Computed example of a mutant assay.
Amino acid sequence: MNSVQHIDTELDGYRARSSAATAEGAQAFTRLLRLAETRDSGQIVRVVRFLAATYNAQAFPLEPFELRAVDVAISDDMLLCLDALRWGQADLHTLVPDGDRRLQAVIARWGLRWPEGG
């Protein structure tokens, strides 16, 4: 295999990983958003803060230690979302039906505050 073929093969692998991560991240984001919309517990406020950080990290900075304060299934979904963000094919809220409106409603419902001018 020559170097061009090797590069093409490597790029194909990256594209496949990116697509898989985006699909898995979309499913995980949907599950987390559904929890934020329907549940009410201490863990869920952490989920909401995570979702808000994926939406606008400048307004809602990500606190990585939140991953340690939720159930394993929730933190696994958070990690899937982060992997999807790493590949950067799409903003996660755009991958779910009416994601922008739903996420903004969850942010408001849980009392997260946008910074002044935000």
Rank of each mutant, 00 (worst) to 15 (best):
V96A: 02
R17N: 15
R15W: 12
A20V: 07
F60Y: 08
Q43V: 01
L33V: 03
Q5S: 15
T30I: 00
A57H: 07
L11V: 02
R39S: 12
D12M: 05
C81Y: 11
S18P: 04
D76V: 03
Y55S: 02
L32T: 00
H93E: 15
V47M: 05
E116D: 02
A105W: 07
A105V: 00
S41V: 00
P61Q: 08
G13V: 05
V48T: 01
L33C: 06
Q58T: 13
L33D: 07
T38S: 13
Q27Y: 06
D12Y: 07
T22S: 14
V48G: 05
D98M: 04
L11S: 06
Q27A: 15
S41F: 07
E10I: 10
W87P: 00
R46M: 01
T38N: 11
S41W: 07
L79E: 04
G13T: 07
L51Q: 05
A28M: 06
R15D: 15
A21E: 02
L51T: 01
Q43R: 10
V4K: 13
A84C: 08
D8W: 00
N56P: 00
F50N: 03
G25L: 03
A69G: 13
A53D: 07
A23W: 01
S75Y: 08
P64L: 14
A36M: 11
I74S: 02
I107H: 10
R113E: 13
L95Q: 08
I107D: 14
E10T: 12
Y14E: 06
I44Y: 03
Q43A: 10
Y55K: 04
Q5C: 11
E66N: 06
G42D: 09
R68S: 13
W110V: 09
D12Q: 11
A90Q: 11
R49C: 07
L103Q: 12
W87R: 05
C81V: 11
A108K: 13
D76M: 05
V70H: 06
G99K: 06
A21W: 04
R109M: 12
L95I: 00
T22V: 01
A57S: 12
I74D: 07
L80V: 00
R17A: 15
V45G: 10
G13S: 14
L35P: 01
N56E: 12
L51W: 04
L85K: 12
L82Y: 05
A59F: 09
R86Q: 14
T38Y: 02
G118N: 09
G42Q: 05
Q104H: 09
D12G: 06
T9L: 14
L82C: 08
G99I: 02
A84D: 06
T54S: 06
R49S: 11
A105E: 10
M78E: 05
Y14K: 07
M78A: 02
D83A: 14
D91S: 09
Y14P: 01
G88W: 13
D77A: 08
